[in-house]
Each structure stands twice: as structure tokens, then as C-alpha cells.
Simulated assay, not measured.
Amino acid sequence: MSSPYEQRDNDSPVEVVWHASGVSKADRAKLKGQQARCLWLTGLSGSGKSTLANALEVALAAQGRHTYLLDGDNVRHGLNKDLGMTDEDRTENIRRVGELSKLLVDAGLIVISAFISPFRSDREAARALFEPGEFIEVYVNAPLAACEQRDPKGLYQKAREGLIKDFTGIDSPYEAPEAPEITVDTAADDLDTCVRKVLAAVCN
């Protein structure tokens, strides 16, 4: 006898059916006067993702855009507080964030998701959740040496001392994007320059 929760191809139980709303994503975005998108910021710890994400949200809000910022540390305080830092947990962390970002885009928002997201396959899985043009990968590119010099949370020092295991860039890999929509160099350019570069690409 099969279970009433026999799995479908999309890994949802057969009794779980997507409920379509009478108000579409396009309707919600139109009400806000914008194109809903996900700006996915990826880069090493200390590369400046959170700083850039915050500055982007401030700049977009000043333009009257409707946004929401998802930050790696903030999400791990609540939604993903049950996850550790193993490769498997990092993949699950990004899977959940991708699904949450998709829902927020469906609400008509410009979502800024700032996560190390070290594995290329996880970022591509997140991209696959969106329609063409909705997912914009922003590679916050800063050399490891620059990130270590900044080390705003003292994490690199702890990783070098062996106090933190599986730290991205030290004893866990970071797979840089191969073809991001946008690349910003936070070691060479100031914050305003980086913000303008991203806004020029998305505010059209």
C-alpha cells in the first residue's frame, strides 16, 4: 500500500499542491512600479557583501523601490539556526534561502541576498528557481589577503589558529562564479563606485 505522502518528481508529497493566487507576481510588481528581482551577492567572508547589500538597499529605497535584504548571519539567527557549517548544511542553507528569495520576488520585491554561498552548484540551483532575468549574480570579488586583513569578525584569525573548522577560503573551498552578471572589486573600488555599478545594471 502506497503512502498518502508518496513523493512526486519535484520532491513534494502528492497531497501538497501549489495554490495559485488570484494576484500574480506581475500584478504585485506593477503595483510597486518595479521589476521584481533577486540580487544574489556572493563572495568570501570579509569581501564586503553585507556592507554593499546594505548600501544597495538604502540607495534603492531612496529611489522609491520596494526591497528586502536577506543577510547570511541574520538568517542563521532564525530560519536556519538549526544548521551548522558542514558542506551539507551549507547546501541546505542556500537551498532554503533560494526558496525564500523566490517567494519574496513573487511578492514583487527586489530581494538582496548576501551569502558566501561558496559552492557553484548551490548558486546555480538557486538561479534555477527564477525566471530568466530575475536572478542577478553579483560577485563581490576581493582577494583572500584583503579579506583577511579586514577580518571584521576576527574569523580568519580563529580559522588560522584552528579554532574554527571548515572556514571558507582557509580549509573549505570557495568556488568563484564563472559568469556572474556583475562583478565588483571591493579591494580596488570604494563603496559608492560598487553601488553605482550594481544600480546601473539593475535599475532599467
Rank of each mutant, 00 (worst) to 15 (best):
Y5D: 13
K165H: 10
G84Y: 08
E92Y: 08
G169P: 02
K165T: 11
A146T: 15
K32T: 00
D190G: 01
S101D: 07
R160M: 03
L69A: 14
K102Q: 15
S21T: 12
A179S: 14
T193A: 12
T193W: 04
R96I: 00
Q149Y: 04
F167Q: 03
Y68W: 11
S12V: 13
V17A: 09
P177H: 08
N204D: 15
N93D: 01
I164T: 04
L39T: 11
F167R: 04
I182N: 01
D73G: 06
K25Y: 01
L60P: 13
E134D: 13
V105I: 05
P13K: 08
S101M: 06
H19A: 14
L103N: 02
C38V: 15
L44H: 09
R120Y: 09
A53W: 08
L144M: 08
G48F: 11
F119E: 00
D171M: 08
P173G: 01
P13G: 10
N10R: 13
P132V: 02
A59T: 06
S117K: 11
L163P: 00
A59I: 03
L44M: 10
Y68S: 03
V105L: 03
G169A: 04
A29N: 05
K81S: 14
A125C: 01
T67A: 00
L163M: 09
H19E: 15
N141I: 02
D82R: 10
K165L: 03
K32G: 02
Y139Q: 08
S50R: 02
N204Q: 14
I116R: 07
V58Y: 11
Y68H: 10
A201F: 12
G33W: 06
F115D: 02
N93W: 04
H66Q: 14
L83Q: 08
E15I: 13
P13W: 11
T42H: 08
S117D: 09
D106E: 14
G133I: 05
L31F: 09
G48Q: 12
T168W: 05
C147P: 01
A125Q: 12
G169V: 04
I136Y: 06
S24R: 12
K165D: 05
L163C: 00
D87M: 09
K165S: 13
F115T: 10
P13T: 11
G22I: 05
D190H: 03
R160F: 03
E6S: 08
D190K: 04
E57I: 14
M1Q: 07
D71H: 08
S50I: 02
E161C: 02
S101A: 15
C203Q: 12
A62I: 05
G78P: 07
L155K: 09
G33R: 09
L191W: 04
L39R: 07
K158D: 00
K153C: 01
D11P: 00
Q157V: 07
R90E: 04
